[in-house]
Amino acid sequence: MGCLFTKHIKQIPGYEEPTVLAGETSFTVSEVEALYELFKKLSSSIIVDGLIHKEEFQLALFKNSNTRNLFADRIFDLFDVKRNGVIEFGEFVRSLSVFHPNTAISEKIEFAFRLYDLRHTGFIEREELKEMVLALLKESDLCLSDDVVETIVDKTFSEADLNGDGKIDREEWKEFVARNPSLLKNMTLPYLKDITIAFPSFVLYSEVEDSDI
């Protein structure tokens, strides 16, 4: 049964061996196999092709495949390392590993920086931050005057943009996060600590595979 299962999953485009992924991430081999069960579910929710499309990602996050969200888009784009419009299994595991409790803080800081660097300039620019604040207000159905939004952005920049050049570079970001560690709160998913225990429904195949290898 294990051999048949292994042959089947090797045909999935973008599939990578759990041992390889475990070697490069904070996950164990069994946890990568458990994640494969989750990946299969997500990647076949709309289009059964073994790849997570943006609509499937949105469906999983919002229970609605049409719900657009700037920050979900950014996370999808960062998971889609090859930038081909879909998330493959290896990309899924490597990216989720950033959110593992055991992953180095430096990786989380870098991922968050790239998340906020909307236009991939290597900086978080003032206009980008304002765009993100406005997107959040729209998502939350909150109404703040433009003056208040400007004040929030100005105040944040006055704390983060230490050299005053109108943009936040990586070093400034690191210092800002060090002074405001709660900014990384959403960069850790406690679920990932031991996914095989947290999600026992995924363990079946993992145990079969472990015993058959």
Partner: peptide, 25 residues
């Protein structure tokens, strides 16, 4: 009142809540 913009974004946006991925199990 002063709000840290990044604090607002990271704590409030549902787009960051990847725990929802696991609820689809």
């Amino acid at each position: 009142p002063f709000f840290n913009a990044f604090e607002l974004i990271s704590s409030m946006s549902s787009g960051f809540d990847l725990s929802s991925l696991f609820e689809s199990k």
